[in-house]
């Protein structure tokens, strides 16, 4: 059963999400998204997921917010433009998606159910054996670094790729590249003339 505090934090999170939806002040939106992440982190603590709470608070609420604030500063954005598009189509799409998701939850195991399939089988083994096999008291660390080590390696590749992407987009050699692209395109048009 869902505890009282859980529901309070979840309701606070929905209020925050709704104010993000309504607000046009981009600085406020970014700060609210940081608050949203921080509330999520406190929710994880309530659910005994301390490692996740740690990461969410530092990476989700910290670094993401910082990156967004930096983007706001670089692009000189203050207010979101009022746009004229008809909101009915997106609302229909979102409501249909939401209805499908709610329909999907009706079959799900209840919150906190120890007999749920996801809490059986392999998990019992991890809890019983990981202390002896890996020698680390923190089960999450054992799984992250050893049992599912390839996952973590893959994660590192993803971050590496993202870093390369960001550097290519914003890195130093960019202005040189621009000139090069111009030259190439002018060469191409020259070629077409001939």
């Amino acid at each position: 059963m869902a505890g009282f505090l859980d529901v309070v934090i979840l309701v606070l999170m929905s209020v925050t999400a709704f104010s993000i939806l309504r607000s046009r002040n981009l600085f406020g939106v970014v700060i609210l998204s940081g608050i949203f992440s921080l509330l999520a982190a406190s929710f994880y603590v309530l659910l005994a997921a301390v490692d996740v709470a740690f990461t969410e608070a530092s990476v989700g609420a910290g670094i993401s917010t910082l990156l967004m604030l930096a983007t706001l500063a670089i692009t000189h954005q203050k207010k979101e433009k009022q746009h004229i598009n008809n909101p009915i189509m997106p609302i229909i799409v979102v409501l249909v998606t939401g209805a499908a998701l709610v329909y999907g939850t009706l079959d799900m195991p209840l919150y906190g159910d120890i007999n749920a399939p996801s809490n059986q089988y392999l998990i019992q083994r991890f809890i019983e054996q990981s202390g002896a096999e890996i020698g680390i008291p923190n089960i999450v660390t054992s799984i992250l670094a050893s049992y599912r080590g390839y996952d973590t390696l893959g994660e590192t590749f993803v971050i590496f790729t993202a870093a390369i992407g960001v550097l290519t987009l914003l890195g130093r050699g960019r202005t040189g590249n621009k000139a090069e692209v111009k030259q190439i395109s002018s060469l191409e048009t020259d070629g077409e003339k001939e």
Partner: peptide, 15 residues
């Protein structure tokens, strides 16, 4: 009450 968590999460997803 056992499913209410999931439903509130779906509200976030919709927003």
């Amino acid at each position: 009450p056992g499913l209410i968590n999931y439903w509130i999460v779906i509200i976030f997803m919709m927003i």
